[in-house]
Amino acid sequence: MSVPIVIHRPSVTGGRRVTIQGQIVGLAHDDHDVVEFLRRAGLPDSEQLLDDPVWVQWRGGRAHRYEAA
């Protein structure tokens, strides 16, 4: 099963790449950044989506953690 939003593992310099439907939408340094990317993509109530495994997959590292790997 594939989810539409992937928050990738933290980079060595900090931040996590965010993809929506396979398209890179930005580098997030906190949950606020992710919510803004989702809002710009037209996803309403994006704050509630962050912990919904049907919508979001957190890869590598703990969810909601953005510091360098």
Rank of each mutant, 00 (worst) to 15 (best):
M1L: 11
M1T: 11
V3N: 08
V3K: 15
P4R: 02
I5T: 02
V6D: 04
V6S: 05
H8D: 13
H8W: 12
H8G: 06
R9I: 05
R9C: 09
S11V: 00
S11E: 12
V12P: 12
T13W: 08
G14A: 07
G14F: 07
R16V: 03
R16K: 06
V18H: 01
I20C: 05
G22M: 09
Q23F: 14
Q23W: 10
Q23H: 13
I24H: 11
V25I: 10
V25C: 02
V25Q: 04
V25H: 06
V25L: 01
G26D: 01
G26I: 03
L27H: 10
A28E: 00
D30V: 05
D30C: 14
D31V: 00
H32S: 15
H32L: 14
H32T: 15
D33N: 09
V35Q: 06
V35K: 06
F37G: 01
F37N: 03
L38T: 05
L38H: 04
R39G: 13
R40Y: 08
G42E: 02
G42Q: 01
L43M: 14
D45H: 15
D45Y: 12
E47K: 12
E47L: 10
L49H: 10
L49F: 04
L49I: 02
L49G: 03
L50W: 07
L50Q: 04
D51S: 14
D52I: 04
D52M: 05
P53I: 00
V54H: 11
V54K: 10
W55M: 15
W55Q: 15
V56E: 03
G60P: 01
G60L: 08
G60N: 03
G61Q: 07
R62M: 12
R62K: 15
R62C: 05
A63R: 11
A63K: 07
H64S: 09
H64D: 08
H64W: 06
E67S: 12
E67W: 13
E67Q: 13
E67I: 06
A68W: 11
A68P: 10
A69G: 13
A69P: 15
A69S: 15
